[in-house]
Amino acid sequence: MSDAASPSRLSDTLWRRPRLLLLLLLIPPALWLGIVYLGALFALLAQSFFSIDDFTGLIRYEWTLRTYGELFRAANLDIILRTVAMATAVTIGAAIIAFPIAYFAARYARGKWKAVFYLGIMLPLWSSYLVKVYAWKLILAREGILNWLFETLHLGWLLNAYLSLPVVGGNSLSVSWTGTFLVFLYVWLPYMILPVQASLERIPPSLIEASGDLGADPRATLRNVILPLALPGIVAGSIFTFSLTLGDYIIPQIIGTSARMIGQAVYQFQGTAGNIPLAAAFAVVPIVIMGIYLTIARRAGAFDAL
């Protein structure tokens, strides 16, 4: 009884003032998000509106769009287009491979199999990214496992025929765009599987039964019910795979051709070349592309079922 009368307990005070509690809870994340996270991003973006003096190599702190103009020089535009093409290919590939895996996990795996699924998806994420990429270099190299496998199966001619193709081919898989694609696909696949699985799991089984009950064969049910309802998950996954590919600079450095992608350009311009404004302008490109992509996805109704 006396406890209820004593006014000093912190929990009592917070219970009486829910707004104060909310404020206390919000301040740390707001500080983090507002200053450390977005603040740093805006500091970077602000750099992109400065330019570099061609003679002194120093940054001129005057607002200009000149640096953005440089993005449209043929060599830089190539980098952008190449990166977007790779990100698109990786995203489509990941969606195609992830969907059946996620579907199995969401609709059929139970108990022990569900644990095996999560372990299988998450296990690669626990090991170092760099180790995985170098492991793939060994797999894809001319002296590597994949080549040996093709030779052993007397299919070496098939691999060589593929490698002689323009654009996707090369001296070996490890120095070809195909190699870059495969490693991107491997490294980002979990980021596609997990959101797709979550969205598939949220579809009530009765909706799939209802579709069949109304006369739709499994293919029509997939097209008319499952895919539209899984679309938010696919879009969420594609945001990961697309933006991670747009920004990565390690995988194309280690595996693939010498032609650069956006991440490498940012790395080189802000490092060796000391051209921070152009690096910042390059960094804006993925942000703009993602903005456009999300706008299109929203217009197309990808988030209607949320």
């Binding site: 009765s206 039964e209 009950d213 064969d217």
Partner: peptide, 15 residues
């Protein structure tokens, strides 16, 4: 299979 049967269902959760 269900999609070839001349029956239709009203589901408990309406679906």
């Amino acid at each position: 299979p269900p999609y070839r049967r001349p029956v239709n269902t009203v589901f408990q959760d309406y679906a």
